[in-house]
Design a protein around this nucleic acid. Structure first.
Length: 193
DNA sequence: CTTCCGATTGAA
DNA sequence: TCAATCGGAAGG
């Protein structure tokens, strides 16, 4: 019997965010629309955040906004940044411990309905642009990432291979020296090298 | 209540 | 280098 489901389980995500963040490179975000349309994005860039890190939204404890990252692994965490862009995260580690992987870039397999000003080349390259292209917003916050939902994750294909590059995170005013960003070497859609 | 500011982006 | 744009969080 061939493997029929590549979907990523909460158990697989129930590890340190520092392990999961690099492991998610090469995996796929599946965006399922109600009309049956589907968008798939290969994850090529991620960052790790956890509550003991000053760059993390959960650093000063649980609030209404960041509640999702304190929940169990397998939930989504979506937030609005600069009043105009959304960022998509995957909650990791044990329930009660604040941690999540920020997905910073994907390479889409199809054409998004909302191309970014017609520039398809850079669609999905950057956390804000990723959410624009995949039509992810606040209604997708604090949701289970499982097949049948609007968004879920699929594991790397069995023959996947790629080299990861590790570096510091982008856009932070605190915790900017921690090497908690990973991207796929040679990937077209990485937001920054 | 008022003020501050961000895990961004692209134009100047 | 800088403005757009706005809701959450912090401070008075």
């Amino acid at each position: 019997m061939p493997q029929t489901s590549l979907s990523i389980s909460p158990t697989w995500l129930e590890r340190s965010v520092l392990e999961v963040a690099p492991d998610l490179i090469g995996c796929t975000i599946v965006r399922q629309f109600e009309d049956g349309r589907q968008l798939r994005g290969l994850i090529v860039e991620t960052e790790a955040y956890q509550e003991d890190d000053p760059g993390c939204h959960g650093y000063r404890g649980k609030t209404t906004r960041n509640a999702a990252i304190f929940g169990p692994a397998g939930l989504s965490y979506v937030y609005l940044i600069y009043g105009m862009y959304h960022c998509f995260n995957v909650v990791t580690d044990r329930d009660g411990f604040g941690s999540a992987v920020l997905v910073r870039a994907v390479e889409l397999d199809g054409e998004p309905r909302r191309s970014y000003k017609g520039k398809l080349a850079k669609v999905g390259a950057g956390p804000g642009k990723l959410c624009q292209a995949m039509e992810i917003d606040m209604q997708h916050n604090h949701q289970w990432l499982q097949p049948g939902a609007a968004i879920w994750l699929e594991a790397r294909s069995l023959d996947w291979q790629g080299e990861l590059v590790r570096s510091t995170r982008i856009g932070l005013s605190q915790g900017q020296d921690l090497p908690w960003r990973w991207y796929l070497r040679g990937a077209k859609g990485v937001s920054r090298l």
